[in-house]
Simulated assay, not measured.
Amino acid sequence: MKTESKLEKILAAGHLAVTGECGPPRGANGDKVREKSKYLEGVVDAVNITDNQTAMVRMSSFAASVICKQEGLNPLLQMVTRDRNRLAMQADILGAYSLGIDTMLCLSGDHTKFGDHPMAANVHDIDSIQLIQMVKQMRDEGTFQGGAEIKAGAPKMFIGAAANPFADPFELRVMRLAKKINAGADFIQTQCIFNVPKFEQWMEGVCKMGLHKKTYIMAGVTPMKSVGAARFMQKRVPGMDVPQEIVDRMASVPKEEQAEEGVKICVETIERLKKVEGVSGFHIMAIEWEEKVEEICERAGLLPRPQV
């Protein structure tokens, strides 16, 4: 064991891990975080706290992680390189660990042109792979990236990274994953999976290189509320691969039944992905629909969660 992270303990014990997601509010009301966290308590092993997702200003992932920790959940602190230089990131890592946050996800972040401050500068002092390396160095070597010793306690973070099996060029996606693993990623969470055959093809490449033995890969899934949401993700969300048959299936049922159909597709996807070699768990991204996560886990046979 590299850390005291509950997520690491679940994965190391060979259980299928489950993580959820909590998007902080676009305001200072911490009760909004507490409301969402209640839906996930006892249902997931860790909760991703997003960091100004879609480049929109929100409550900081650090603060929302602390609130979730106070509510008894295990926060998974997301950190993007877009908004901070390496000094600020290292300071936040130390601060988060001092408050009992021991799991994080290293990301680049969406470009600011997609958000509500398109004029904002993209910092990107380092990229996501360098961020992974920096956190690993802090944890394993007890030094800051600049080389100075961390004298008051190294942050023992369980380090995560993201992977998109569907981005172009597809042929390079496995190599991109290998770079993140070599940099020190302990676990991987993938983009939302709707095109299961393409994901299976990606996993074949992952297993052929033996990467599934070097890290834990958590498959990302998302329940869709409507055919409108399916079409939006298909046409408007970069890096998303939503096959037309999924959109057609959502459109084939009455509007009032589309939410149930979206949940059914999500559960079916989980059941199929359980059989894919190298899949160590599931990251359920029920965006602003946290109340459905327990039902999805129940129907997919992922409850009760194991105790470690």
Rank of each mutant, 00 (worst) to 15 (best):
H124E: 09
H117L: 13
I126S: 01
A96F: 05
I129K: 08
S108R: 14
Q133T: 13
G95P: 00
K113G: 06
F114Y: 14
G95S: 10
G100V: 07
D110K: 00
K136W: 06
F114T: 12
F114K: 11
S98V: 07
A121W: 00
L94M: 15
V135L: 06
K113T: 15
S98L: 13
C106R: 02
M119R: 14
H124W: 12
G115T: 02
A121I: 08
Q133M: 14
P118W: 09
L105Y: 02
D110I: 00
L105T: 06
I126H: 04
D116W: 02
L94Q: 15
G100T: 06
Q130F: 05
K136N: 09
G95N: 10
C106F: 07
S128W: 01
Q137T: 15
L107Q: 01
Q133W: 12
M134Y: 10
L94I: 14
D125I: 10
K113A: 14
G100M: 02
T112F: 05
C106A: 15
A120P: 04
I132T: 02
Q133S: 15
H117W: 13
K113H: 15
Q130L: 05
I126D: 01
G115P: 03
Q137S: 12
I132P: 03
S98P: 12
M104T: 03
G95A: 13
G100A: 12
H111I: 07
I101Q: 02
H111R: 10
D116G: 05
I132E: 05
V123E: 02
D102P: 08
A96V: 07
G109P: 03
V123N: 02
G95T: 07
H111N: 11
L99A: 11
T112D: 10
P118G: 08
Q133F: 09
I129F: 08
D125C: 09
H111P: 04
L99M: 15
K136S: 11
H124D: 14
T103R: 09
M104D: 08
H117F: 15
L94S: 11
H124C: 08
A121E: 15
M104R: 04
I129E: 08
M134K: 04
M104C: 14
G100F: 04
L131V: 12
S98C: 14
D125A: 11
V123W: 03
H111S: 13
M104A: 14
I129Y: 06
Q137N: 13
D102M: 08
Y97T: 02
T103F: 06
G109C: 03
Q133G: 13
I132K: 00
L131P: 08
Q130P: 07
L99D: 11
P118C: 09
I101M: 00
G100H: 02
K113S: 15
S128G: 03
D127N: 15
S98F: 09
Q130M: 13
I126C: 05
L94T: 08
S128K: 05
P118I: 09
K113N: 12
